[in-house]
């Protein structure tokens, strides 16, 4: 079947199989390999993408579900001039990753939170991010980055 959706700001129509996950389509067909696959059980969050601004597990969401919706992957976060999103910059500034495998999902999950609530407290950040696993950093650098980006995004408002 055909699905039409907005992918990282561009209207896109793809021929898909109904059984295909969004992760298969994005990684395989669109070569958006920032969508990472790990637990395949909606536990780890490494495949997190935003669908209509909400974080979802692309490994367990059918591509069929994004008909008429907006899909954002990590590749769509920097602006057209290549300027990084404040979260991306904050992750660089705080060394919020090591292997980097969880990073796209972390950044997108955090973006969903800050888009909704850029005044999130630490407790709210932890509650929101608790479904995204990182095996390298011990989380503190990620928390610091989200705080920094939240500050910056509040400043822009």
């Amino acid at each position: 079947m055909n699905v039409s959706f907005e992918l990282n700001g561009k209207q896109t129509t793809l021929e898909i199989e109904q059984r295909e996950s969004l992760a298969e389509v994005l990684r395989g067909r669109c070569r958006l390999t920032g969508v990472k696959i790990s637990c395949e059980a909606q536990v780890c969050g490494s495949c997190t993408v935003l669908v209509d601004d909400l974080p979802v597990s692309a490994c367990t969401l059918l591509a069929y579900e994004v008909r008429g919706k907006r899909v954002t992957t990590i590749e769509g976060l920097a602006d057209d001039s290549g300027r990084l999103h404040p979260l991306q910059q904050a992750f660089l500034d705080h060394f919020s990753f090591q292997c980097g495998y969880c990073t796209p999902g972390m950044i997108l999950a955090a973006k969903a939170l800050l888009d909704e609530n850029s005044a999130a407290t630490d407790a709210e950040i932890v509650a929101h991010m608790n479904g995204n696993l990182c095996r390298c950093t011990g989380y503190l650098p990620i928390l610091k980055a989200i705080r920094q980006a939240a500050n910056q995004l509040r400043g822009q408002k």
Partner: peptide, 9 residues
């Protein structure tokens, strides 16, 4: 319930 992604879908 579960995590933000599960709650969204």
């Amino acid at each position: 319930v579960a995590n933000v992604r599960v709650r969204a879908t």
